[in-house]
Amino acid sequence: MKQRLSTLLVAAAMSAAFAVHAQQPVKKPVPPPAKAAASAKQGGITAEFEKFREVLEEDNPAELFEARGEDIWKHKKGPDGASMAQCDLGLGAGVVKGAYVQMPRWFADVGQVMDAERRVVHCMVKYLGYKEEDIRKQPFSNVNKTPDHVSVITYVAGQSRNLKIAAPQKHPKEKETYEIGKEIFAYRAGPYDFSCATCHGEDGKRIRTQDLPNLRKPDQAIRAYQGWPGYRMTGGFMLTQQWRMNDCFRQQRFPEPGYLSDSITALLAYMTATANGQVYKGPGIKR
């Protein structure tokens, strides 16, 4: 026991040293062989984590949230007896199958382009009597609570499992939203003069052990979708695309957008349309 503990401590100390080392500013150009070795090591870590994630994905606790969301969708009634059967996610009232991969889209009833999360919240407010200001108080999950709307989004996402992403680009507003998203993606500002493209605009970038997708390319833009909403293993709760966007705004040292803001819909429209044609595998699992 004592020996195992000390081995653990050594391992912990080693990884701490590694982390500190990784944060040291680069003073001189790293010679190529050392760089190659370092990235092979990183690749190894990522590969190991990917294996772990694959095993867990077979029994992803996200399913528990899908079930909870399904229950709300099918059985919950609003104060005047309305239900989500009246909610149109773009394919007709009450149709859930395939809807998630076909948003953001233009919704004539509200005269807006909405992403999936925004539309689901819109319906829960309209039909089930949820209060938007309450949802805004805790839009994202934490270790204490995964809010109802997050479970419903997880259910809706699960109903597009193994379907092709097909965000419509027909309506002029859908095209405009895409263009705005593209522009926001490239917009540099803030204390570091960063844009999304600083971290996500080239192949092969990473931060510590995380490989960063080049979201301008279709085969990598899928990662804006794949695995979201995701079950976060640390803490055991569901996180949505909107959360991911807010967290990247934070990493970019931009002010975090308000929940369900137009700028996020635009970014999602841009990234989703870029990923069109690829298969969405359903809610995922994240470290």
């Binding site: 077979e58 029994d59 606790p61 528990l64 270790v143 204490n144």
Partner: peptide
């Protein structure tokens, strides 16, 4: 057989906000 259980599984070690 595989079973997924929905439970908080609080350890009693965690502190809230």
């Amino acid at each position: 057989v595989r079973v997924l259980m929905s439970h908080a599984m609080e350890t009693g070690q965690r502190k809230d906000n």
